[in-house]
Simulated assay, not measured.
Amino acid sequence: MKNFRRNILLIGLIAFLSVNATSQNKKSSVTESDVKTEKKKKKKKKKKVKLPNIDLSHWKVTLPVANEEGKPIEISPPEILDFANIEVAKPYMYIDSTRGAIVFHAMPTDSKTRNTKYTRSELREQMVPGDNNTNWTFADGAYMRGKLAMDASTRGSDGKYHRTIIMQIHGRLTNEQRDLIGEDDNNAPPILKIYWDKGKIRVKTKVLKNINATVPAILHEDAWGDDDGFNFEEEVGFSKFTLEVKVSDGKMVIVLNKNEYKVYENVHIRKWGVFENYFKAGNYFQTRDKGAFSKVRFYELEVSH
C-alpha cells in the first residue's frame, strides 16, 4: 500500500514538473517573440531625421513675399540660421527632414526684386555676414558646389514644365564704379545663370556687344548681351544631381555630376574681370503664369574662395 501511494505521489510530481516546464517554455517563447515584435514596431516608429549639409552663416535669403513697403522680404545672418522658426519664411524655405534638404518654394506674387518681373526664394552669398559690400572678383577665384533636385514644378499651357534658375553668379558695381557711370544702385548683370529647364540643365552667360569696349563703357548693363546658351546632355529630371562652378582669372567652368563640363575662357570672361561678384542659389522662378509654382531641394551647398 505504501508503495502504491509512493508511486502515485511520484507520478503526480513528475506530471507537475512536466506541466510547469512546458508552461515556462511557452512563456519564454512568447516573451522572446513579443520582444522581437516590439523592437520591430519601435524601429518602424523611429523615423530617421536627416538634416541638410548647408551652413547659412554667409547667406541671406530673398522670399517671394513683400513687406509693408512692397519690397521682397529678406532674412540675413544671424537670423537666417533660425529660418525654420521664422513664420514668414516657413512656406517658402523649409527643411525636408525625410530627405535631408532645404526646400525653396517660389510662385508668382506681387513681390518682385528690382529690374525683374519674376519672384524668387533664393540665397545670396555674403562674404561678410549681413553685408553686401564685400564681394569677389574672378582674379580672387571662387568655387560653389551644390547637390540638389527639382522637387516639383507646374507645367505651362504648352504642356512643358516651367523653368527656374537654380544657381547664379551676379555682378556688382563698386561704389566708385556706380558713381563713375551715374547709377543709383550697385546692380550689374549676372555673368552666369544655371537653369533647370524641362528636366535638363541649361547655362547662360553674358557677352560684350562691342568686344573693344573698355571702362567706363563696359560698366553699363546695356553693354552686355546674352549668349546663345548651352544645354548639358544628361537629363536630370527630378533626380538628385551635383553642380560645380569654378571661377579663376579669365575662366569659368561649370560641371554636372563630375561628368560633363562647360568651359568659358574668352575675351568676354576676361573683360568681366572688372566687376565684383557674388553667388546665388535656390529657386528663381521664371514665369508669371497664374497658379504656377516650383520647389527645389538643396541637400548640400558649399562655397570657397
Rank of each mutant, 00 (worst) to 15 (best):
N7V: 07
N7I: 06
I8W: 13
L13Y: 04
I14A: 14
F16R: 01
S18G: 08
N20R: 03
A21Y: 02
T22E: 13
S23L: 10
N25I: 03
K26T: 02
K27M: 08
S28R: 04
S29A: 13
D34E: 08
K36A: 14
K39V: 11
K43S: 15
K43G: 08
K48W: 05
K50F: 11
K50H: 12
L51R: 15
P52K: 04
H58D: 11
T62A: 12
V65H: 04
V65Q: 08
S76A: 12
L81M: 15
K90F: 07
K90P: 12
I102Y: 00
F104P: 02
F104C: 11
H105K: 07
A106M: 06
P108L: 00
D110C: 09
S111V: 00
K112Y: 03
K112P: 02
R114I: 07
R114Q: 10
K117H: 08
Q126S: 10
Q126A: 12
G130E: 01
N132P: 08
N132G: 10
T134E: 05
T137E: 12
G141P: 10
M144N: 07
M144D: 07
M144C: 11
G146M: 14
K147C: 05
M150C: 11
R155E: 08
S157M: 07
G159P: 09
G159M: 09
K160A: 13
Y161P: 01
Y161D: 05
T164I: 02
M167K: 03
H170P: 01
G171Q: 09
L173H: 06
T174D: 05
E176G: 01
D179E: 14
D179Q: 12
L180H: 05
D185A: 06
P189C: 11
P190V: 13
D197P: 02
G199K: 03
R202A: 13
V203T: 07
N210G: 01
A213G: 03
P216N: 14
P216F: 15
D222N: 11
A223K: 13
D228Y: 07
G229C: 10
N231W: 05
V236K: 00
V245P: 03
D249T: 00
V253L: 14
V255H: 09
N257S: 06
N257Q: 07
K258R: 05
Y264E: 13
Y264H: 10
H268C: 00
Q286M: 12
T287F: 05
T287V: 00
G291H: 01
V296L: 01
Y299T: 10
Y299M: 07
S304Q: 05
H305F: 15
